[in-house]
Structures are given as structure tokens and as C-alpha cells.
Design a protein around this nucleic acid. Structure first.
Length: 486
RNA sequence: GGCGCAUUCGUCUAGCGGUUUAGGACACCGCCCUCUCAAGGCGGAGAUCACGGGUUCGAAUCCCGUAUGCGCUACCA
């Protein structure tokens, strides 16, 4: 190991949003760092200027912050190994490219894109085992190269893969993976526009930034031999690798936009809690031996271990996410829920109305076990915020009997006499009416719920009445009697 | 096509040669609780451990092959 303490990095390219797969990669890196007293670095891989997206970096950073994946070093933080944005490190990559060229481990290539395409097509037509660059420019004489360079001919720098032993990867998750050197292409290291490719930049930066463990998606496994060669050619120590399984669509293809939300921001905007998303995504490819599934961030840090990461891809199953969201939501203290509800309120159709904290807190306690998302504290119980506009027909059919109106009137009389009725007062009143009329309590309970809420579901009816308060209850019963008592 | 990785209930997974009639979770179904809906409790259905060969007294677990899926195969990351 290069350092006593591990250093890991999350190195996304700024494509505009944070993919949930990226979120999980970031999380695993973060957990690995935190659980090993290591450092977590954020590095922006923006070497493809054709895919630059406005505000992508800012958005990425915001989302990471929202998720709570705080990094020790990064573009907007100080650190010994900066800058942490690759487009600001161009001279560094050129320095090492030059070194590689001098040592014969890389070479200038002046082939046109047309020639490369033709070459590839030719290879395909001949059904050659594998398509590779033909090292055409490696055979250029020194003076030829100098002349072309001097006349500013467009060129790239390629890795010079020489025959040799198999390249071995000892992956922390997959164990040993071997590649024949013959299958490794002379990868472009520096593009014609002077920017490095991922392969060069990633190796140079990981080394210079003293990264000890490269934890990344499985899509990188196939190009890891190129990276290992680069480390060898540069004479650098090779970091440990851990290639994470992919996140999949329900049809097992790689998680993509077409089949649902892939941006972490989408989940945030749809009301998912960071705790739930992180917990869920952590479980996609990792588990503990005791099958524990509900984790706080602290517990994740405490329990995480890279060697308990799976090898196979995992389908992103939204139903389990929903369940975890409900679990995390219920685990929150009322004060926090209150703040969230007030926030949500501002975005709802009740934005203009104002409710006291006391009132909202009562709703929170009553609805706690009945919601999975914060917005459901509004959507699932509109009757706390406004009078019912209608009465559920199915509930009327089932619960509204011939004597309902009459019983309601009697209940109304009883509670009108009450002063600041408590939950128990309502219950006593109802008991009395039921007894006096020789009917079961249900005969009162269901119609009452119906007329004060408009629906047949919700908190206990006495909670409902108490929360709404006598005035609203009386008014709503009155109103309902004019509508339903025909 | 080549190279690589993977393969346990619908899904996420436990399992690391015998304690397994393969365990848990989500979803689903039923029962209990109960004024409704939830939550909670209990139970059910759901996996010939992809398939075929080995190795072994014994394999979901080790080895080999096949199949399937996925990834890479760019001057994208």
C-alpha cells in the first residue's frame, strides 16, 4: 500500500446529472474511506469536450452534497493534490505522455479517422479475431515524425503495447482476472485536440493523487489491463482494484433512462429521502451476513466491507426503495417531519393557507404509520387542510344506513354541549349515543368518518375529530346532513 | 466476431463441502389485532441453486464444458 491510510476517489464525468449507479459507486468509495480512516476524493473527468454540459459539475456537486457524501478533497475544496478537474491538468498529462514516448512505450500516430474506420471495417470483413490498431505509425522514422510534428499535422499519442506475459488483475471483488497482451489495443492516450483519454488521465491522476484503491463500475474491467500497462511503463505502483457489479433495468439490461429514472436528482425531486436512496443503493450489490436491511449512514460506515460486495449485476427494484423510504420516514423525529411537511406545504395547493405547528404535529402523529412519502402527509389526508368536496360513493353505499342521519344529529347535539372536547370526550359522546339508541358503535363511527373526511380510510375516528376540532366537526356534520340526508 | 464478467424464489440477497426438507427482505395472498386504512404479529405461496459432466463418502458451495445475460471492443467516459 502506498499510504498508511487508504485514499479513494469518485471520478465522474460531468454529463449533466448523477446517475444512480454513480451514486452507488460514490457511496461505496465513501463508505470504504470512512470505515478505514481514509480519504475520499472527488475528481472531475471532463476530458471529452464534445460532451460538455452546462452546469454539470455544479449539479453533480450539489447532488453529492444533498446525498451527504462529503469528500475530503475536490474541485471546490483545497487539497494537496489538486487541481481536481482534469481539464486543468493538461500539462501534467503531456509531461507523462512525452516520457512514455521517450521510453518507447508510446508513439505519435498521424492516422486519419478515415483510415482508422477503413481499417476497422476491413478487419471486420476479414473476421479477424479482434480489431486493433495496426501500429502503422510506429514504423514511421524519427525524422518523419519530426517533420509531421513540425508541420502541425493532426496527431494522437498511442500506447505501445508490446508482446509479453499475460496481464493479471487481482480484483478485490472478482479475484484474479487475466488478459492476453495480444488482445490489448494500442489505445489512444492523447487525443488530437490535446486532451488525454480517460485511460491516461485516470492512471496519471490516481498515481499523483496517491489513490490506493480504485473502486469503480464493472464497465472498466475490460480496460484495466491498459491501465496496468501504463502503471508498469511509468514505473508506478499499481493500486488495488475493485470492480462493482452493474445496476440493471427490470429486463436486466444496463440501467438506462428509457426504463425509469436514472438520475439521483429525479429521486430527490420525487420525494425520496437521501437516507432511503443511499440505504437502497448500498444494498444493490452488498449485504451483511446477518441480512440486516435498514441502515443509517453511521451503520453503513460501521458495517461496510468491500469483500462483501457481490459479483452479479442487480436490478433496480423500486418497490423496495419505496419500502425503505417509508421506514426511514417513520424513523424520523416529529420535529424533522414538521420541517419537511412545512416545506412540502409551500409547494402544495395549500401554500396560501397557514396551519399552526401544533396542528401539523397532530397530523404527523396521526398519519405517521400511514405514509411512505412526505407528500402523503398532504395527499393522503386533504381533509385536515380543507373541507371534503365530496363523499366517497363506495363508502356511502357500505356505511350510510337509514338511521345514519338521525344518529349523526344526536351525536351532533351531544358534542355541541362539549367545551374543548378531548379525544375521550368524543368517544364518550359516541358511546352514549350508541347505547341510547341500542346500536353498535360502528353505526356511528363509519358515518362520522365519512362526513368529516369524505373518505373511509384514515386515522382513528376520535383522533380525527380531536385534530379537526369541534368547530370543523360540527360544521362538516351539518353540511353533510343537508347533502346525504335525503 | 473477439475478450472479459456473471448466473440461488418475480426482485434484492444469506449461503463460502456435511448443521439445508436452501434462510431473510420487498412485493403478493391469508389470519390475528381492529371503528376504517395503515403499522405490527403470525402463517402461506414462491428457487429441480441456468444446464451437463466431473472431483468427493458427500456439492448451491471445488473443477471443466455448454447455454444465457451483461460489459468492453472509440481520438466517450
Amino acid at each position: 500500500m502506498i499510504n498508511e491510510y487508504p485514499r479513494v476517489r469518485f471520478a465522474p464525468s460531468p454529463t449533466g446529472y448523477l446517475h444512480v449507479g454513480g451514486l452507488r459507486t460514490a457511496l461505496y468509495n465513501y463508505l470504504f474511506a470512512k470505515s478505514n480512516d481514509g480519504k475520499f476524493v472527488l475528481r472531475i473527468e471532463d476530458t471529452d469536450r464534445n460532451r460538455l454540459v452546462e452546469n454539470a459539475v455544479e449539479n453533480l456537486i450539489n447532488t453529492l452534497k444533498w446525498a451527504g457524501l462529503d469528500y475530503d478533497e475536490g474541485p471546490d475544496k483545497s487539497g494537496e493534490y489538486g487541481p481536481y478537474t482534469q481539464s486543468e491538468r493538461l500539462d501534467i498529462y503531456h509531461k507523462y505522455a512525452k516520457q512514455l514516448i521517450e521510453n518507447g512505450k508510446a508513439y505519435y500516430c498521424f492516422c486519419s479517422p478515415e483510415r482508422l474506420t477503413a481499417l476497422r471495417e476491413e478487419q471486420q470483413r476479414l473476421k479477424l479475431p479482434q480489431a486493433k490498431y495496426d501500429k502503422h505509425c510506429l514504423n514511421l522514422s524519427k525524422s518523419d515524425v519530426q517533420a509531421k510534428l513540425a508541420s502541425n499535422e493532426p496527431h494522437v499519442v498511442r500506447l505501445n503495447v508490446e508482446p509479453g506475459e499475460r496481464v493479471l488483475i487481482d480484483d478485490l471483488i472478482r479475484g484474479r482476472v487475466e488478459f492476453e497482451r495480444e488482445v490489448i489495443d494500442d489505445q489512444v492516450l492523447i487525443k488530437a485536440d490535446g486532451y488525454p483519454t480517460y485511460h491516461l488521465a485516470n492512471v496519471v491522476d490516481d498515481h499523483l493523487m496517491k489513490i490506493t484503491h480504485v473502486i469503480r463500475g464493472e464497465e472498466w474491467l475490460s480496460s484495466t489491463p491498459k491501465h496496468i500497462l501504463l502503471y508498469e511503463y511509468l514505473g508506478w505502483e499499481i493500486p488495488k482494484f475493485a470492480h462493482l457489479p452493474l445496476l440493471l433495468n427490470p429486463d436486466k439490461s444496463k440501467l438506462s433512462k428509457r426504463q425509469g429514472d436514472v438520475a439521483a436528482e429525479d429521486y430527490r425531486d420525487n420525494g425520496y429521502l437521501r437516507e432511503a436512496l443511499l440505504n437502497f443503493v448500498a444494498l444493490l450489490g452488498w449485504s451483511t451476513s446477518d441480512n440486516k436491511e435498514f441502515f443509517t449512514m453511521e451503520e453503513l460506515i460501521e458495517n461496510f466491507s468491500i469483500d462483501r460486495v457481490h459479483k452479479a449485476g442487480a436490478v433496480f427494484n423500486i418497490e423496495k426503495l419505496n419500502w425503505l423510504n417509508a421506514e426511514h420516514l417513520r424513523a424520523k423525529p416529529a420535529s424533522e417531519l414538521l420541517a419537511m411537511l412545512k416545506d412540502e406545504m409551500k409547494k402544495s395547493k395549500y401554500a396560501d393557507k397557514s396551519f399552526s405547528d401544533e396542528y401539523l404535529l397532530l397530523i404527523i402523529e396521526a398519519m405517521r404509520e400511514r405514509v411512505s412519502f412526505i407528500k402523503e402527509y398532504i395527499d393522503n389526508c386533504p381533509y385536515f387542510y380543507e373541507e371534503p368536496h365530496s363523499y366517497d360513493e363506495a363508502v356511502i353505499a357500505k356505511r350510510w344506513k337509514e338511521d345514519s342521519a338521525d344518529l349523526l344529529r344526536k351525536f351532533l347535539e351531544k358534542i355541541k354541549a362539549l367545551e374543548n372536547p378531548t379525544k375521550e370526550d368524543y368517544e364518550n359522546s359516541l358511546d352514549q349515543v350508541a347505547q341510547e339508541n341500542g346500536v353498535g358503535k360502528g353505526r356511528l363511527i363509519h358515518p362520522i368518518r365519512l362526513v368529516v373526511s369524505g373518505v373511509g380510510i384514515g386515522p382513528g375516528v376520535f383522533d380525527l375529530l380531536y385534530i379537526l376540532g369541534k368547530e370543523k366537526v360540527v360544521n362538516r356534520i351539518h353540511k353533510a346532513l343537508t347533502v346525504l340526508d335525503k
